[in-house]
Amino acid sequence: MQGLDFTIVAPYWDLLLTGAWWTALLTVSAGALSFVFGILFAVTVLYAPLIVAYPVRVFMWVFMGTPLLLQLFLIYFGLVQIGIDIPALAAGIVGLGLHFAVYNADVIRAGIVAVDVGQTEGARSIGFGKWQTLRYVVIPQAIRNTAPPIGSNLIALLKESSIVSVIGIAELVHSAQQAISETFRPFEFYITAAALYYILNLVLEAGLRRFERNVEVSR
């Protein structure tokens, strides 16, 4: 049995922080993508003509019904075969972003439907068009009302982003593994990585709570 010795982490600290930085970057960019596409999918499914809405619905079923790992492999390794070569980082962001966009779309769709019909009538009676009403009145309220579940999805995304280590993106788990392969000390590095994830999540949660508090007054 080996004793525990966390001083081993010190020389790899920069490596781990760089990994954490990439994790944060992945979360922010994939999170933004999942948010924007979540709204886009929700609006498409609800309001677009069937010829557009139906393919999006099928896409959503497929993305919800298959593992994220498989989706990443498909985007990164599979698409090359048909001539679409996407860099690992882009593949990771797109994969994570689309995967969570589907979850966000489900939540936002429910949020849009739940906005009182009086809101739409109020906007239409002033002279706002269908899309203007969605953009300025319905969607902002749907987002506010569904902020907590969207936030949970974002927290899940932060943790699930570790999976992109398999396509070689040097995020936090990937960095920890690299350090382990040189030191053969998995416990210390996995614990340190876990602590860093936890800190990132604390920051994220603080941000989300702040947003929800701001939104609270305008409900």
Partner: peptide, 22 residues
């Protein structure tokens, strides 16, 4: 209709103010 509605003000029983705006 959007043009026409701009020329008619409507006031509803349940106000229908936009809660996310001041």
């Amino acid at each position: 209709i959007n043009k026409v509605r701009q020329q008619m003000g409507m006031v509803f029983q349940h106000f229908n103010l936009f809660p996310h705006l001041t």
